[in-house]
Computed example of a mutant assay.
Amino acid sequence: MDKITFLNELEQELSGLPRSERDNVMYEYEQYFFEQESDGKNEYQIIGALESPKQIGKEITARNAIDTAEHLTNARTILRAITASLGMSILSLIIILIPMIFVGGFMLILLFAALLFFLSPILLLVHGLMNHMLSMAISNYLFALSFTGLGMVLFVTIAKLAELVYRLILKYLRWNIRTIKGRADK
């Protein structure tokens, strides 16, 4: 593979990045080639010392997705970061994806329970009206209102748990990239 082919393949791998990011990366690699050629190396020696364009592209794309997820905290950006990192190693699949299915399922169950608790006064009234057994006991409504408070506390707990999981995922993804990069450098 020659320099032009290498740079073309790298640009192809970076096609998912914003144009300015892609241009910066391409400029850095062109500059790297220029410096190495000035030191007397030929393009085949330079390419031999580098990773493949595909691996470089995956790493840069993953790093960019993680940076974006740190600045724009939402489910879409974290899923994009996880997806980009999955392409780098099978370890990510085992350590991130499988536990995320369990954590996500657990959080959905908690969210459903919080919603039921929050809506318990309305559910109590609807149940009473449908069965023609509208309760006059004030204690039933007080318990239903306390469940509403419990539902609100559960919503806040779920939000804090989601924030913690989000930060842990980002830390792991950064660690994963450093580990893979370190392994490739050796």
Rank of each mutant, 00 (worst) to 15 (best):
L14V: 05
R80N: 12
S52M: 05
I66V: 13
Y166G: 04
L173P: 00
S135F: 06
G40L: 05
E30I: 08
K3S: 03
E43N: 06
V103W: 05
P53Q: 01
F143V: 07
Q55C: 10
V126W: 13
I98V: 10
I47Q: 00
A75F: 07
L115V: 06
M1Q: 06
E9F: 06
L50A: 06
L97T: 07
I60L: 12
G16A: 07
A113L: 14
A162C: 10
I66E: 00
A62E: 00
Y32F: 15
A69K: 00
R76V: 14
E30A: 10
I109P: 03
I47P: 00
L72H: 07
I78D: 00
L145A: 15
N8Q: 13
F102I: 10
A49T: 11
I138F: 13
I122P: 05
L145R: 02
V165Q: 03
E28M: 09
L14Y: 03
N176A: 13
I95L: 14
A84N: 00
W175L: 15
I101W: 04
L93I: 10
Y27C: 07
K54P: 03
F117C: 05
G16F: 04
S139H: 09
Q31P: 05
L129D: 08
H127I: 08
I94K: 07
S20M: 13
L10G: 00
I158M: 07
Q12C: 12
K186M: 09
S85H: 03
L161E: 03
W175N: 13
L129E: 11
I4K: 14
T73I: 14
V126A: 15
G105Y: 02
L142F: 12
E21L: 07
G105C: 07
A84G: 03
S38W: 04
Q31A: 10
L17R: 03
L168A: 15
S120Y: 11
F147S: 09
F102P: 01
I122H: 10
E21T: 09
G151I: 01
D185N: 12
M133V: 11
R63I: 08
I180K: 02
K181G: 06
M107K: 02
L115C: 11
V165M: 07
Y172E: 07
P121E: 06
E163I: 06
E59A: 08
L17Y: 04
A184M: 11
R76H: 11
Y44M: 13
Y141F: 15
L91V: 14
V153M: 15
L111S: 10
W175Y: 15
L145V: 13
R19A: 15
M136S: 14
A137Y: 04
I101A: 12
R80D: 12
L124E: 05
S52Q: 04
N42S: 09
S20A: 15
R22V: 02
T68K: 06
I158L: 14
L14G: 01
G105E: 03
S20K: 14
F143G: 02
G104N: 04
I66P: 00
P18C: 06
E163Q: 13
D67G: 11
E21C: 10
D23G: 10
R63S: 15
G149M: 11
A184R: 10
E70Q: 13
L115Q: 04
E51V: 06
I60C: 02
D23M: 09
E11F: 04
R174K: 15
Q31D: 14
N24I: 08
